[in-house]
Amino acid sequence: MAEESVAAEQLRLFIERIERLEEEKKGISDDIKDVYAEAKSNGYDVKTMRKIVALRRQEAHARQEADALLETYRTALGLH
């Protein structure tokens, strides 16, 4: 019986930690939205900014590979 109560307590603590982290994540997400809204109100294109953030998240070799593939496709479709 003691093992069950210890396991239940441990489970409760895990759940509470997850709930706190989810709340922090929501707060950070809201902060990011606010920054994008501020950038937009200052005339920046948010869609392009999101792409830049995604590109900066990639490693250099992955970004270069994606750029090369995009260029190949653009050339093949006459979009160059």
Rank of each mutant, 00 (worst) to 15 (best):
A37C: 03
K51F: 00
E16R: 11
R57F: 11
D67Y: 12
R63L: 12
E22N: 11
E65C: 02
V46L: 04
I18A: 07
A66F: 12
I18T: 04
F14T: 01
E16F: 07
E3A: 04
V46Y: 05
K26Y: 07
T48E: 01
R17Y: 04
R12S: 07
Y73E: 13
E3D: 12
L55W: 08
L13S: 08
D45L: 05
D67F: 08
A37W: 01
K40T: 00
E16Q: 10
Y44N: 00
R17K: 08
L55D: 09
A54S: 03
D34H: 03
E71A: 15
M1I: 02
M1K: 10
A60G: 08
L79D: 13
K25D: 08
K33H: 03
R20S: 12
S29E: 07
M1A: 10
I15C: 10
I32R: 06
A54R: 00
N42T: 01
L21R: 11
T48A: 04
I18N: 05
L69F: 12
S41D: 07
T48M: 00
L21C: 02
F14V: 06
I15Y: 09
A2D: 07
R50N: 06
A60P: 12
G43A: 04
E71Y: 13
K25W: 03
I52S: 03
A66E: 14
A68G: 10
E71N: 12
L70R: 14
H61W: 13
R56P: 00
K51Y: 05
Q64F: 07
L79V: 15
V53P: 03
E71M: 13
L13Q: 06
I32P: 03
L79S: 10
L79P: 14
T72F: 13
A8L: 12
R20A: 13
S41P: 02
V46S: 02
G78N: 14
S29L: 05
A8I: 13
L11A: 09
E16D: 06
H80V: 15
H80N: 15
R63D: 11
E23F: 03
A68T: 14
L77I: 15
R17S: 10
A76W: 15
A39K: 00
A76T: 14
A60C: 05
L55P: 01
K47Q: 08
S5D: 11
Q58G: 09
I52P: 06
K33M: 06
I18Y: 13
L21D: 05
L21Q: 06
K26I: 05
Q64A: 15
I32S: 05
H80Y: 14
L21K: 06
Y73N: 14
E9M: 05
H80M: 14
Q64Y: 11
L70P: 12
K25R: 08
L55C: 10
R50K: 08
D30E: 08
A37N: 09
I28M: 04
M49Y: 00
V35H: 05
